[in-house]
């Protein structure tokens, strides 16, 4: 039972101080979660603290490997709209 930070992390430090278990640490190339320390906030908070402040969709996965903040959930940009805009930029 632990969350995982993956490579889309932008190293913004926001999650580190809000972790009730001090499980998050600065590392290269991005922050990591000590899976032995992570409690998924159980007993402390009803929601994952790291994933509640993380600004990057998809950067934190739950114990099943699923994005806690899926595409579009934080920025409000519909994923298809984002894909469209990126395709448009690529074509230039």
């Amino acid at each position: 039972m632990a969350v995982k930070i993956i490579e889309s992390c932008v190293n913004c430090f926001a999650c580190e101080p809000v972790c009730p278990s001090n499980a998050i640490y600065e590392a290269k190339p991005h922050f990591l979660v000590d899976s032995k320390k992570c409690t998924e906030c159980e007993g402390d908070f009803p929601v994952f603290q790291c994933a509640s402040i993380c600004p990057i969709e998809g950067a934190i996965l739950d114990s099943l490997g699923l994005a806690i903040n899926p595409p579009g959930s934080l920025t409000g940009i519909p994923p298809e709209k984002m894909a469209e805009a990126m395709a448009e930029l690529q074509s230039h």
Binding site: V10, C12, A14, I53, P55, T75
Partner: peptide, 16 residues
């Protein structure tokens, strides 16, 4: 100061 506590629609946190 890298961390932020809100999201603004004119900001993208992949700022590098």
């Amino acid at each position: 100061a890298p961390a932020c506590n809100i999201q603004c629609h004119y900001c993208n946190r992949k700022y590098d």
